[in-house]
Structure formats: C-alpha cells, structure tokens
Amino acid sequence: MALRLSLENVHYSYPLPGREDAPALTGADLAVEPGEVLCVAGSNGSGKSTLAQVCAGLLLPDSGEVLYGDAPVEGRAGLREFRSKVSLLFQSSEDQLFADTVAKDIAFGPKNHGLRGGELEEAVRRACALVGLSLEELGSRSPFSLSGGEKRRAALAGVLAMDPEVLVLDEPFIGLDHTGRELLKSTLERYREERGASVVIVTHELSDAWGLAERFALLSGGRLLKVEDKSDLLSGEVELSSLGMKLPQWGELVRELLGSGIAVTDPSDPRMIAGAMASFREARGE
C-alpha cells in the first residue's frame, strides 16, 4: 500500500550555461494521497514534466522538500529507497525501449532493483499480463519491431514490473486512439486496485483523465494553483481557459445543465445525463 507523497515548496531551475537559470518549478506544493488517482494538468511549459521527475526522485529540488509517508527523502540511501517505491513512465515512452528483446527491456528495471531468476521472471510475466501484452508472442522480438501501441504497452510493463507504490505517468495518452486510451485507463485502474498504488497522471488535456481521476491539480508557471475535485471544476470557479486548458465536452455539458438547475452526479454517464434532461423536460411540460 502506498504512503502519502508530498512536495513542499519545491523550487527547481534548469541551469543554462552562460545565462540565467530557467526556473521550471517556483514553489510547488502537492500531496498525493495513498491509493488515489490524481491528475496534474497544465499548459505547455507550465512545469509538468519537471514536476513528474521531482515526484519520482529523478530530479532533486534546489530547495523545498519531497516527503514520502511524512519522512523527508534525504541522503543517498533515502533516495535509493524512495526510487524503489516510485516509478515514472516518461513522455514518448515508445522511443525509450532499447534492449535486444521485449522481455529484456521489461526486465531492465526490476533487475536494477535486485530481482533475479524466478522472481524476475514472475515480475515480467505479471507486468505483461497487466498491460495485455503476450510475452509468449512478443517477448523474444526486438522492441523496434512492435507497433506504436505495443511499444507503449511494453514501456508501461517495464515500469509496472518494478512494482511501484506510486506510479507517475507523463503525458501517457498523447497519440493513443480511443481503444488505446481505454486500455490504458483500465490497466491503471486495475493496478491501483490490486496494488493499492497511487497513480499520478500528468497531462495537458483534462479529458484524458476525466473518467479516471478523482482530483485535479492545476499547474501554472511552475506552481500548483489549486487541487480540485470534478465538481469544483464544473462549478466554474477556476478560469481554465486562462490556464491554457478547457473542460472536456462532458464537463461543458454538465456545467450548462447546472445552469438550468439540473444536477448530475456522474459527469460522464450518458444514460444518467439523458435521464436528468428528460425529467427536466417532462417537469416543464406539466
């Protein structure tokens, strides 16, 4: 079961030789609650990828703190321990496969974590099953011979094989079609349930995480502005367009309906929305 992962007042700048550093995070505060799906959303250049890498212990804050289970992540041993619990699926993960075979590629992470022999095989097998990739069929093939969608799944399997308590994914939906997105969503949902893991989805597109995330952290200019649940986003308190984002069409519809006094509990269930609309019309007709 995952512990609470939090960032407190994290600053991070990229050093630029001969120039002033480029600040990417300017006081980011974030808490990922155990076992939740949290969506971190922001426009291009808002600091999303940097935040994802800080969450996974790959970039160390210039100042501020990363805590796991209320203990600050400190020192070499502490960092190693933290990295064994949190894993990141990089953006464009399909371009980051490198081993001779798919099976070796997926085994790379858990092997680095010290797994060997039967344990390692089992980790790879379990990860392949989770992402729906046939190890028998594809395991001995070169990762470069896979289709785009298969490469993505192999990359995710490589991350899941490390059995992380917190899984961070940077723009995992870009370029996936409807089937691919649904498959990814169900994989994440299942992993979270079986493992008790927390899942952080970093994206520029709210619709990607709409049916999956409970809470949405909005990032702008390297700071987290707000963490909201879906109903807060729908009430229109946050001006999403000023953050370079917009509600998915589901959200726009539910917001319009709210304007007519129609409240819908699940803002992505067509049957429920249709039912609420029909009763409203009937009530007007009477």
């Binding site: 997105r181 069409q249 992505s268 067509p270 249709a274 029909a278 019309r281």
Partner: peptide, 23 residues
Amino acid sequence: LRELGLDPLAVTLVAYELRRAGH
C-alpha cells in the same frame, strides 16, 4: 464511431440515450 475505434462526442452519446428512451 465506437465500431470504428473512435471516441464519440459526449453530446452525441447523450442524444443517443435520449432517442433510445423515445425522445
């Protein structure tokens, strides 16, 4: 659209449910 592997617009899914319910 679903058969073709596409993600239908929310509005068309709700309209479809309304039509199915006889509206």
